[in-house]
Design a protein around this nucleic acid. Structure first.
Lengths: 118, 118
DNA sequence: CGGCATCCTTGGAGATACTG
DNA sequence: CAGTATCTCCAAGGATGCCG
């Protein structure tokens, strides 16, 4: 909710951005999920539900970064967060439909990487 | 080559190891083209050959940023640069095969954007 | 275990000005 | 037109510490 420190959202669209949006929405998509950590985390959640420290280990993100990006992703509707407040608190993250619909993007990236990264 | 997890691997691997192998391509791809301007410019070049100021207008990048990203992209083999040194000098940029192979990624992003950005 | 607060470093990127 | 050179600003993100 209160993500004040590193928040720099600008809702205003420039003419250029609007014009590009008319042509295609690649730019819009890039603006929303075009950051490294968002992509890495979302891609990681394709396997299914994961917990905070699990994501921390598998992505290599710091607690701070992971926490912030997860909050952003949740606010933007890419992931859901289920919390269990019992003894050792547990927090589980899953992809929403919006997030899951990015799978074709990851598949395409994966395929491209298979051809050009080895 | 199929990029699906190599099933039938009875060897014991940790989740992290399996995940890293599994995810490596996506992460690697994100590391290479995961920045906003790279994606925007490459996507813009899908239309075909474009000149410097043309890209500047259509992407909205500053001369400085555009120049640097174009240099990077050329060094990394994503684009080609053809120069005409006649009267008004002209510089044309096109996608290489490596860059063009990213089209499925842009298509996937475009499709996702069509569903979730409006 | 999950995750927020603080400090601090780096580089991404805009504005501006200048060359060939 | 096609860049390059600075200067500058700010967000991203690592490290560390603390707390429920």
């Amino acid at each position: 909710m209160s993500t004040q420190p590193p928040e720099g959202d600008s809702e205003e669209k420039t003419d250029v951005e609007r014009r590009n949006a008319d042509v295609c929405n690649v730019v819009g998509a890039v603006e929303e999920v075009g950051s490294k950590w968002k992509l890495v985390i979302l891609n990681d959640l394709r396997d299914g539900e994961k917990r905070f420290n699990e994501l921390k280990r598998s992505t290599g993100a710091s607690s701070y970064t992971l926490s912030r990006v997860l909050n952003d992703l949740e606010e933007e509707g890419f992931i859901d967060n289920r919390k269990e407040l019992e003894s050792p608190v547990a927090s589980y993250y899953t992809l929403t439909e919006k997030g899951g619909d990015l799978c074709p993007v990851f598949d395409a990236l994966d395929e491209w990487g298979a051809d050009w990264l080895e």
